[in-house]
Design a protein around this nucleic acid. Structure first.
Length: 366
DNA sequence: AAATGCGCCAACCGCAATGGA
DNA sequence: GTCCATTGCGGTTGGCGCATT
């Protein structure tokens, strides 16, 4: 058992094969066949173990190997065979002439797995990642989180003639606002609360709430309710502190906005301010609307379609299809749970921006 | 321009299976 | 039946090159 005996021998080369070594091995096997692999290196004049020679021959030097990218037919066949055989790469390889088990395995791990996930298919089971029922369960969990003490709904109208105008320029519409819970009793750790989105005039939808959660940055492990009746026209002391904070550091506010929304699209808070009174030309509102629209399209789609496996790929427009849903399980914060509902790549983008924003806010408050 | 991150893939490693003595 | 050398297989690693910061 254990390590092959040849590996104990001294002076055996490892790592990438040189062209000279390839030539020696190729010449030897072409003339004599491989025979007993353990004797090949000695007879071929190579400082390698037999195992290494065998692998090099099978995966690279064999004359019947097919080179180049996998065709669409090959790709489909691999997926089909994997569904039937699992990770039995050598068996799969016997059905693809000219392809090695190693090659197929690498192709699977680096490419096909991701492709399937993007289509909403679990690459291990070859079944949809999340069923419609699981999706609804997940949304219920979020609903519960949002109505718990961790996130407090406040209602009130935004007044343009108070200082909230400058800090909460995301929308000038009146309506409910959503705040993340306080992480501690100190105010400085909740500066970020002042940057919440506002929702629409009506009761927020689940997608509104998700957007709100992701836009907040609290990662509380022992959340404390912040406030219950926020009225921008008459904020309480805590709220006043948040608002004053924004207003006393306007340049920082600019940076924070651009950090959150991305420099490419939302560079200046002043731009937002200037267009704030015109909802048809407000980049932040547009962005918010984008988020809402894809979330609602997914909801609509999953409600209309009981089978989601192939439809996600073919029937829904591509930029929606790339999103898939996973059940929120043991995440420690509502933000994380909300974040798991987004596609990985998008979460990453938002995560980075939120991290930047977080550090800026905390740096400023220290 | 340098540092860092990331994906790809050749090759390695350990274990199981096989077969001969 | 047992031992041991060899072969086969699948998971994992490490290094290279490209992209991003």
């Amino acid at each position: 058992m254990g390590r092959h005996s040849c590996c104990f021998k001294q002076k055996l080369r490892k790592g990438l094969w040189s062209p000279e070594e390839d030539e020696k091995l190729l010449n030897y096997i072409t003339r004599h066949g491989h025979g007993c692999w353990s004797s090949v290196p000695k007879l071929a004049g190579l400082q390698r173990c037999g195992k290494s020679c065998r692998l090099r021959w099978i995966n690279y030097l064999r004359p019947d190997l097919k080179r180049g990218a996998f065709s669409q037919d090959e790709e489909s066949l691999i997926i089909e065979l994997h569904a039937a055989l699992g990770n039995r790469w050598s068996q799969i390889a016997t059905r693809l002439p000219g392809r090695t088990d190693n090659e197929i395995k690498n192709f699977w791990n680096s490419c096909l797995k991701k492709k399937l996930r993007r289509k909403g298919i679990d690459p291990t089971t070859h079944k949809p990642l999340v069923t419609t029922n699981e999706l609804h369960q997940t949304l219920n969990v979020i609903d519960q989180k949002l109505t718990s003490s961790e996130v407090v709904k406040s209602t009130g109208s935004i007044n343009n003639n108070t200082h909230d105008h400058q800090s909460m320029v995301v929308s000038n519409q009146s309506g409910p606002w959503w705040f993340p819970a306080a992480t501690t009793t100190t105010t400085t750790t909740n500066q970020n609360a002042a940057f919440c989105f506002s929702s629409s005039n009506t009761t927020p939808t689940v997608s509104d709430q998700i957007v709100s959660l992701i836009s907040s940055m609290s990662t509380s492990s022992s959340p404390t309710p912040m406030t219950s009746n926020f009225n921008p026209a008459a904020p309480n002391n805590w709220e006043l502190q948040q608002l004053n904070y924004c207003n006393t550091v306007p340049s920082q506010t600019n940076s924070i906005y651009s950090a959150f929304f991305g420099n490419n699209h939302y560079t200046e808070a002043s731009q937002i301010m200037n267009t704030n009174n015109n909802n048809n030309n407000n980049p932040v509102l547009d962005h918010h609307q984008d988020m809402k629209s894809w979330a609602s399209e997914i909801l609509h789609y999953t409600e209309q379609n009981q089978t989601s496996e192939t439809c996600l790929e073919t029937e829904v427009k591509p930029d929606i299809a790339k999103y898939y849903w996973r059940s929120a399980s043991s995440s420690s914060s509502p933000n994380q749970e909300a974040a798991t509902l987004l596609h990985d790549a998008d979460v990453e983008v938002y995560g980075k921006n939120l991290q930047k924003l977080n550090s800026m806010v905390f740096d400023q408050s220290l």
